[in-house]
């Protein structure tokens, strides 16, 4: 029998990781190949907001529904949590930049490079967060090599 709540974090991280990376690929494609297509810009913003929500839920379930480890596992957990918070910060900034472009400049295509920079940081951070999290889960707790 499962402790259902303990599986919320491992379940929800799929959305955070996959949507941030796929959203970034979609935004990159939009910026370089469909620059003037407003629909593509709308969909990339939709994916950005969805991935931001995914990361937020993953961080919240991580804080609320995972236990505290001890010893070396605790070190991995601390690093994983710090990186996760940084990822959430970066993706939130990306969302805010895009919302400012829509609300303040009334132009969904505004601030493209600033968005891309923070989006890229988010992708790098989520990959590193996932890597440390994977090492914690598979390498230490499950001892899979």
């Amino acid at each position: 029998m499962y402790k259902i709540e303990s599986l919320l974090h491992p379940g929800l991280i799929h959305f955070g990781i996959a949507l941030v990376i796929f959203g970034w690929i979609f935004y990159f494609f939009t910026l370089f190949f469909r620059k003037n297509d407003l629909s593509f810009h709308k969909f990339s913003v939709f994916l950005l907001l969805l991935s931001g929500l995914g990361v937020l839920l993953a961080v919240m379930t991580g804080i609320l529904f995972t236990g505290e480890y001890e010893g070396i596992d605790r070190d991995y957990q601390n690093i994983h949590m710090d990186l996760a918070h940084l990822t959430l910060f970066c993706i939130s900034i990306t969302c805010i930049i895009k919302l400012v472009a829509i609300v303040r400049y009334k132009n969904i295509t505004a601030l493209p490079w600033l968005t891309l920079i923070f989006y890229t940081f988010s992708v790098v951070l989520i990959v590193v967060t996932g890597y440390v999290g994977g090492n914690l889960a598979y390498g230490h707790l499950l001892n899979i090599h």
Partner: peptide
């Protein structure tokens, strides 16, 4: 920190599940 062959599948499965 490691990345062995055993980590490849758990890394890739995020995409089909979420997408």
């Amino acid at each position: 920190l490691k990345f062995t062959e055993a980590y490849i599948h758990p890394s890739v499965v995020h995409f089909p599940i979420a997408l």
